[in-house]
Amino acid sequence: MQLIECPWCGPREEVEFSYGGQAHVPYPDDPGGLSDEEWAHYVFFRDNTKGRFAERWNHSIGCRRWFNAIRDTATYRFERVYRLDDPKPVTP
């Protein structure tokens, strides 16, 4: 089984984590001014990247903290994990 490195606890088994979708989706600056279609894009529309993808993960059977990870969606390899208040790392 793959080990995922929790930024707080260290490497733990994959089953301890739950997936939280795409990271860095900004909340709209002016929510009241959005049309229904724009709302739908904010709420439901996500990138479907093949390759490196910034995602949110939760260490649910551990410290229960959210963190972000750069994962390759083709190989399932975790390239980087970082805390929510860290900037998105620049990957080569």
Partner: peptide, 10 residues
Amino acid sequence: SAQTTLGQAG
């Protein structure tokens, strides 16, 4: 200390 799974139990 560690919070982890042992078998299927947290």
